[in-house]
Design a protein around this nucleic acid. Structure first.
Length: 116
DNA sequence: CAACTGACTCACT
DNA sequence: TAGTGAGCCAGTT
Protein backbone atom coordinates (compact mmCIF):
# COMPACT_ATOMS: atom_id res chain seq x y z
CA UNK A 1 0.00 0.00 0.00
CA UNK A 2 1.62 3.22 -1.22
CA UNK A 3 2.00 6.08 1.19
CA UNK A 4 -0.29 8.23 -0.89
CA UNK A 5 -3.03 5.69 -0.24
CA UNK A 6 -3.25 5.52 3.50
CA UNK A 7 -6.27 7.76 3.64
CA UNK A 8 -8.76 6.35 6.09
CA UNK A 9 -8.69 6.53 9.86
CA UNK A 10 -5.81 8.97 10.08
CA UNK A 11 -6.58 12.63 10.63
CA UNK A 12 -6.01 14.98 7.76
CA UNK A 13 -3.16 16.56 9.65
CA UNK A 14 -1.29 13.28 10.07
CA UNK A 15 -1.80 12.34 6.46
CA UNK A 16 -0.19 15.59 5.41
CA UNK A 17 2.76 15.01 7.72
CA UNK A 18 3.42 11.46 6.49
CA UNK A 19 3.00 12.52 2.91
CA UNK A 20 5.59 15.26 3.20
CA UNK A 21 8.07 13.23 5.25
CA UNK A 22 7.93 10.45 2.66
CA UNK A 23 9.48 12.89 0.19
CA UNK A 24 12.70 13.45 2.11
CA UNK A 25 15.49 11.77 0.09
CA UNK A 26 18.16 9.59 1.62
CA UNK A 27 21.10 11.54 2.89
CA UNK A 28 19.03 14.61 3.70
CA UNK A 29 17.11 15.86 6.70
CA UNK A 30 14.22 18.25 7.24
CA UNK A 31 13.31 20.11 10.40
CA UNK A 32 9.98 19.77 12.20
CA UNK A 33 9.31 23.42 11.49
CA UNK A 34 9.91 22.92 7.78
CA UNK A 35 7.36 20.13 7.64
CA UNK A 36 5.04 22.35 9.64
CA UNK A 37 5.50 25.25 7.29
CA UNK A 38 4.69 23.17 4.23
CA UNK A 39 1.45 22.16 5.92
CA UNK A 40 0.57 25.74 6.72
CA UNK A 41 2.43 27.26 9.65
CA UNK A 42 5.71 26.82 11.45
CA UNK A 43 3.69 26.77 14.64
CA UNK A 44 2.62 23.23 13.91
CA UNK A 45 6.14 21.99 14.65
CA UNK A 46 5.21 20.43 17.99
CA UNK A 47 2.16 18.77 16.51
CA UNK A 48 4.29 17.38 13.69
CA UNK A 49 6.55 15.72 16.23
CA UNK A 50 3.55 14.12 17.87
CA UNK A 51 2.24 12.86 14.56
CA UNK A 52 5.56 11.21 13.80
CA UNK A 53 5.70 9.70 17.25
CA UNK A 54 2.59 7.70 16.49
CA UNK A 55 3.52 7.13 12.86
CA UNK A 56 2.22 3.64 11.89
CA UNK A 57 4.38 3.27 8.78
CA UNK A 58 7.76 1.56 8.41
CA UNK A 59 10.76 3.79 7.80
CA UNK A 60 10.91 2.73 4.16
CA UNK A 61 7.62 4.53 3.55
CA UNK A 62 7.81 7.35 6.06
CA UNK A 63 11.46 7.97 7.01
CA UNK A 64 10.66 9.85 10.19
CA UNK A 65 14.29 9.52 11.33
CA UNK A 66 15.13 12.16 8.73
CA UNK A 67 13.17 14.80 10.61
CA UNK A 68 15.31 16.71 13.09
CA UNK A 69 15.28 19.83 15.24
CA UNK A 70 15.86 23.24 13.69
CA UNK A 71 19.00 23.89 15.75
CA UNK A 72 20.79 20.87 14.32
CA UNK A 73 20.20 18.43 17.15
CA UNK A 74 18.87 15.04 16.13
CA UNK A 75 15.78 15.27 18.29
CA UNK A 76 13.65 12.45 19.63
CA UNK A 77 12.75 9.08 18.18
CA UNK A 78 10.29 6.40 19.18
CA UNK A 79 13.04 3.77 19.42
CA UNK A 80 15.68 6.06 20.91
CA UNK A 81 17.61 9.00 19.52
CA UNK A 82 20.74 6.84 19.47
CA UNK A 83 19.18 4.62 16.81
CA UNK A 84 18.01 7.66 14.90
CA UNK A 85 21.48 9.18 14.92
CA UNK A 86 23.09 6.00 13.63
CA UNK A 87 20.61 5.60 10.80
CA UNK A 88 21.32 9.14 9.66
CA UNK A 89 25.06 8.61 9.75
CA UNK A 90 24.69 5.42 7.74
CA UNK A 91 22.76 7.39 5.14
CA UNK A 92 25.63 9.80 4.80
CA UNK A 93 24.42 12.66 6.98
CA UNK A 94 27.29 14.54 8.62
CA UNK A 95 26.87 14.65 12.39
CA UNK A 96 29.58 16.09 14.64
CA UNK A 97 29.26 16.15 18.41
CA UNK A 98 25.58 15.33 18.15
CA UNK A 99 24.99 18.25 15.81
CA UNK A 100 23.95 17.83 12.20
CA UNK A 101 25.62 19.90 9.49
CA UNK A 102 22.45 21.60 8.32
CA UNK A 103 24.26 23.73 5.75
CA UNK A 104 25.08 20.54 3.99
CA UNK A 105 22.27 18.10 4.72
CA UNK A 106 19.14 20.18 5.28
CA UNK A 107 16.75 19.76 2.37
CA UNK A 108 15.41 22.76 0.47
CA UNK A 109 11.86 23.31 1.64
CA UNK A 110 10.69 23.84 -1.93
CA UNK A 111 11.53 20.24 -2.71
CA UNK A 112 8.98 19.21 -0.11
CA UNK A 113 6.30 21.50 -1.46
CA UNK A 114 6.58 20.29 -5.04
CA UNK A 115 6.56 16.76 -6.24
CA UNK A 116 3.23 15.61 -4.99
C1' DC B 1 -15.53 20.76 27.81
C1' DA B 2 -11.12 21.99 30.59
C1' DA B 3 -6.52 20.36 31.54
C1' DC B 4 -2.26 17.86 30.23
C1' DT B 5 1.30 16.05 27.34
C1' DG B 6 5.05 15.97 24.00
C1' DA B 7 10.07 13.36 18.64
C1' DC B 8 9.35 21.79 18.84
C1' DT B 9 10.91 26.84 18.43
C1' DC B 10 12.07 31.31 19.47
C1' DA B 11 13.47 35.25 22.50
C1' DC B 12 15.93 36.50 26.35
C1' DT B 13 19.49 36.14 29.97
C1' DT C 1 27.59 28.99 24.48
C1' DA C 2 24.20 27.14 27.64
C1' DG C 3 19.93 27.43 30.35
C1' DT C 4 15.10 29.11 31.06
C1' DG C 5 10.36 30.44 30.00
C1' DA C 6 6.54 31.22 27.11
C1' DG C 7 3.94 30.19 22.95
C1' DC C 8 1.78 26.81 19.76
C1' DC C 9 -0.86 22.76 18.15
C1' DA C 10 -3.04 17.98 17.68
C1' DG C 11 -4.38 14.24 20.64
C1' DT C 12 -5.51 12.09 24.90
C1' DT C 13 -7.52 12.17 29.73
Amino acid sequence: MPVSDFNSKLSNFKKRVYEIVSKIPKGYVASYSQIAEVIGSKNYARAVGNALHVNPFPREEVPCHRVVKSNGEVGGYAYGSYVKTNMLIEEGVEIINGKINLEKNLININLLKNRG
